[in-house]
Design a protein around this nucleic acid. Sequence first.
RNA 1: GGGGGGAUGCCCGAGCGGCCAAUGGGAACAGACUGUAAAUCUGUCGGCGAAUGCCUUCGAAGGUUCGAAUCCUUCUCUCCCCA
Length: 353
Amino acid sequence: MPVGTQGTVKAMTQEELVQLDFPIILCNTYHTYLRPGHELIARAGGLHGFINWQGNILTDSGGFQVFSLQELRTISEHGVEFKSHLDGSKHLFTPERAVRIQGALGSDIMMAFDQLAANPCTKQQSAEAMERTHRWAKRCVDEWHTAREEWQRGENEMLPNPGQVLFGIVQGGIYDDLRQQSAEAIAELDTPGIAIGGVAVGEEKALIFSTVEYTTPLLPDHKPRYLMGVGEPDDILHAVSCGVDMFDCVLPTRLARNAAMMTHYGRVNLRNSKYKEQFTPVDDLCDCQVCRNYSAAYIHHLFQAKEILAARLATFHNLYFLHQLMADIRVAIRAERLDAFAAEFLSLYQAAQ
RNA sequence: GGGGGGAUGCCCGAGCGGCCAAUGGGAACAGACUGUAAAUCUGUCGGCGAAUGCCUUCGAAGGUUCGAAUCCUUCUCUCCCCA
């Protein structure tokens, strides 16, 4: 899933996302609630209507902002009070409200409102965040049932997507026993999909790998398993081999805006002067329209000149690259040669790192 | 012809006797980025050295001073006003 926090995958049009063949994108509840507002979006026909996206949409609940906007919020059992980064106004997010807002946004998959522990933190802090996440997940599920019943009785106009589902989120930090507890608690809620959260929030790679390796098999394998916020190609390959089905990550789009492009030969920085006269494609193994039509030298020039097109071309390529990686992974899985594919891919990708 | 400003590192520009190898921007060079407060942030940016440091720099030459980018003299170049 490309990430489109504010209702836009930065630098791409929805037509380009269709062209890139993504079936689903991620939008953010907290950010779209603050601006332009969930009620306005509901009046526009939900996120789908408002942003003109016929594919699926997953909304993150605002749980990540509890983590990323630590200085701007206070947590209690009831919920989280945010101080808006836009105008300083105060906004109370509870699990119930996160569900209602996502209902109004009309996404296809809404996420439970969770709490990820700050990084670094003690096991005690991880456990507290996890336990609260469990209580909040239960409240999300209950509120979701209530909202659906209201809608079925015709009492709730703010539910533009009757097909919407809710996913629970497993927390527990880097601690196996906590992850196990969390996997059990969230699985018990019987949501149609389950996410692994609180990963890749500053911990070293080995810990990301071991956490995913331990946690994923604990989740029901007949439901989609979604690893939130990951990641880099090697993370994805590893997580898929552990049984993960879904990913979202800001990396391809953010890196692109900062001149980094993912190639079969590893990540490269197009600002580097070595590309000044490279009149060949950035990645000669890539057949995206950017690599087919534009040279590294040109893209280097666009970044040096701070032209908008630089971000657009790099974003298109990075998204294409990860989409292609996932497609290749699916082919490899069907051919029962995922490990071989991963080894081949990584030998080239990591050689230059 | 008369009067008044300026010349600082690749560029712009601060400094106006010691804390100045010289604030700040920009450019350049490199790095970071994992459910997006990010088209952002960080570092380097006269030479040599691992380093206390040493050497060469603030238009040019001379001078004053323990000490000068900063004060004085002359010169060169430039900008503005009046005629």
